[in-house]
Nucleic acid binder design. Structure first.
Length: 172
DNA sequence: TGCACGATCTCG
DNA sequence: GAGATCGTGCAT
């Protein structure tokens, strides 16, 4: 009875995916068999090399490599030496875009998301379409009664006014 | 080979 | 409002 989201869901551009992914269910299955499900409540879109707030603006490196892949992969990275950020790669191949999962139901703040999901380096490049430990499911009820709020992205002042003021943060 | 810094959180 | 804490990119 899997209702995993299909590949088509992820291969659109990051801003569209960010809005669509709100309200969906993030599923995490731990090694001991415990399964946790969280509704996704807050996301941000990072769009390509031109977006100075996006890590891909540095070009294709070992770190950003995964963003150049087709949508549906996981991009995780360590920030401030202690928090794992969870991102979902979006777009088509060679379109380095990703959606940062900033908040889940009852869990606010991207650092706490990574902690709750027990993320680590091994999740880099994980395939959301095939993984047995992390994936995203459709909601059962009619999804579109959601009120989506928009604002600017967090913590990226360094990228300058043009990019830091893009309304690419979405939350319920 | 070394160094400055960041898509954050918690505590005071 | 500062510190924790370390991988990454970029300058030597």
């Amino acid at each position: 009875m899997s209702s995993k989201l299909s590949k088509d869901f992820y291969t659109i551009d990051a801003v569209a995916l960010a809005k669509n992914i709100l309200g969906k269910i993030l599923v995490r299955k731990f090694e001991d068999g415990t399964t946790l499900k969280f509704k996704i409540t807050e996301v941000e879109a990072y769009c390509g090399e031109d977006d100075l707030a996006c890590h891909a603006s540095k070009g294709r490196t070992k770190r950003t490599e995964i963003m150049y892949h087709e949508g549906g992969k996981v991009y995780v990275y360590l920030i401030y030496g202690m928090y794992w950020m969870l991102n979902v790669v979006s777009g088509k191949e060679n379109e380095p875009q990703a959606v940062l999962i900033r908040g889940l139901e009852n869990i606010s703040g991207p650092g706490r998301v990574g902690k709750a999901l027990k993320l680590d380096r091994s999740f880099y490049g994980e395939d959301l379409l095939q993984s047995e430990r992390i994936w995203i499911e459709k909601t059962l009820d009619s999804a579109e009664n959601l009120k989506i709020n928009t604002s600017t992205r967090i913590g990226i002042e360094y990228s300058g006014d043009i990019w830091s003021k893009k309304p690419w943060r979405f939350y319920l």
